[in-house]
């Protein structure tokens, strides 16, 4: 059973097909870089994978189960464009909130652990409103990892995060891989993504133009993929 199966997913906005017949199987333990131009459908696909949006046709299965199932959502971690934290709550309260929503047995301990790992334990009771940009980002990363997801979905992580947050993210992603978890990230920051990725999927005009293992050409020449498989 694959970690993630996208079965002929179509998504329409009105009559406009934003995603056309996307078929993708991702095996557990891989990191997929979802590439494509702005408006190609990367975010739409990620939102469907995250259960934030329903496909018009087709199905998404996470470990064989429907993406909108409660038990499936428990295994998915999503980091979108926003940090998804409440400004008026403290760092600790934010993490506790999500810990409770995900039904963690001991949200307080897990929150303390995550704050420690992201270097935010000193400001655990500070309001997010007062945090610097970098601190907010690290807290956002902590939130995503609170419930220890098997499948991590990242939307443009490298544009939103600063170096230290990316460092934390790398460590945590490595940890996910260790236990056989899967990462899907959308990005147009090619170099960072390709260094991290084991696989690459290129979306063009709502269609999958290429999917396969990352190879050396891609690493040496980031434009190679677009030139080879993309349209001019």
């Amino acid at each position: 059973m694959n970690a993630l199966e996208v079965e002929s997913v179509w998504k329409y906005y009105g009559d406009f097909p934003a995603l056309r017949d996307i078929k993708l199987n991702v095996e557990a333990g891989s990191t997929v870089a979802l590439l494509g131009r702005n408006g190609a459908g990367k975010t739409t696909l990620l939102r469907i994978l995250a259960g934030l949006s329903k496909p018009s046709k087709g199905k998404v299965r996470v470990k064989g189960a429907d993406a909108r199932l409660e038990s499936t959502r428990r295994r998915i971690g999503v980091l979108g464009h926003g940090i998804s934290l409440y400004d008026e709550l403290s760092a600790n309260e934010n993490l506790l909130l999500f810990g409770r929503l995900y039904g963690l047995p001991d949200p307080a301990r897990r929150a303390a652990e995550m704050l420690d790992r992201t270097g935010l334990d000193r400001v655990r009771d500070g309001l997010v409103r007062e945090f610097s940009r970098g601190m907010r980002q690290r807290l956002a990363v902590a939130r995503v990892f609170m419930h220890d997801p098997d499948l991590l979905l990242l939307d443009e992580p490298f544009t939103a995060l600063d170096d230290r947050a990316i460092g934390v993210l790398h460590t945590l992603i490595a940890e996910i891989h260790q236990k056989g978890g899967t990462v899907v990230m959308s990005t147009h920051q090619l170099r960072e993504a390709l260094e991290l990725a084991t696989h690459v999927a290129l979306i063009q005009r709502g269609q999958l133009a290429f999917a396969g293992e990352r190879n050396q050409e891609m690493l040496q020449d980031t434009g190679w993929l677009y030139r080879t498989y993309g349209e001019s």
Partner: peptide, 19 residues
């Protein structure tokens, strides 16, 4: 290269980033 309508692709196994 994928034809219009998109063919199925499989991403199997592969590199593990060094922990």
């Amino acid at each position: 290269k994928a034809e219009r309508g998109g063919a199925g692709f499989s991403l199997q196994g592969g590199l593990q980033p060094t922990p």
